[in-house]
């Protein structure tokens, strides 16, 4: 896979890491530092329960419920927690709204902070050095690599998540969706549109 040079150049490293992690897991289990069933429960949470469908529900509701959009603008933490999407890496939330002339993009240049409670685990590219290094300094070039070219007169606002505040982008509602319900709109909201590297989908 072109995104991962380690797969190509250094198979032994992956093998070394497999051995290293297995050994550490066994040692921590033997010492009573981890419960193996807890590891499975953690993975089950983030692989089957908590993911970007949570965020899509937030966005679709914001598009269809003006009172909720208002609440989200003023206190996203309370508004999103009230939907049942709280917890780890989502304790404090800010929703940033795209609008005509303004596009928002989220990054964490210092590590990989990401709103797990609404978007799940971060994609590989979000944690990569090219994205972390360049999203702040040349966001338009980065967006072009995602196939997104914004009009020159659309300002880009980049949010660098340096604290425990997590950011979710509320993309603009696609045209041609008048009268759609929140349930109909949810599939148009991709993970990347809530990070800001894509727009919400166009209805088929």
């Amino acid at each position: 896979m072109p995104h991962d040079h380690h797969d190509h150049e250094d198979h032994s490293q992956l093998d070394d890491m497999t051995a290293r992690v297995m050994a550490l897991e066994k040692l921590m289990t033997d010492k009573g530092l981890v419960d193996p069933a807890a590891l499975d429960a953690i993975l089950d949470t983030y692989e089957t329960r908590v993911g970007p469908r949570n965020g899509a529900r937030v966005v679709a509701r914001a598009w269809t419920d003006p009172a909720f959009a208002e609440a989200l603008t003023h206190d996203a933490t309370t508004a999103i927690h009230a939907m049942g999407f709280g917890g780890r890496q989502g304790e404090h939330l800010t929703a940033v709204f795209n609008k005509p002339g303004l596009h928002n993009l989220v990054v964490c240049t210092l590590c990989s902070c990401y709103p797990w409670s609404v978007l799940g685990l971060p994609p590989v590219w979000y944690k990569s050095m090219p994205y972390r290094a360049r999203a702040v300094s040349e966001p338009r070039a980065v967006l072009a690599e995602f196939g997104l070219t914004l009009p020159e007169d659309t300002a880009v606002r980049v949010w660098d998540s340096t604290a425990e505040m997590r950011y979710i982008v509320i993309p603009q509602r696609p045209e041609g969706t008048d009268g759609w319900t929140a349930e109909q709109l949810e599939p148009l909201v991709s993970r990347d549109s809530m990070i800001g590297t894509a727009l919400a989908g166009v209805p088929a």
């Binding site: 896979m1 072109p2 995104h3 990054v107 240049t109 210092l110 799940g120 685990l121 971060p122 994609p123 590989v124 590219w125 990569s128 050095m129 090219p130 994205y131 972390r132 290094a133 360049r134 702040v136 300094s137 980065v142 690599e145 995602f146 196939g147 660098d160 990347d192 590297t197 894509a198």
Partner: peptide, 18 residues
């Protein structure tokens, strides 16, 4: 790393695994 050069392009891998 914010603003550092030399890391190359982003590989979006839109639907790739985490």
């Amino acid at each position: 790393v914010g603003g550092r050069h030399g890391f190359g392009p982003v590989a979006p891998d839109i639907d790739g695994p985490v």
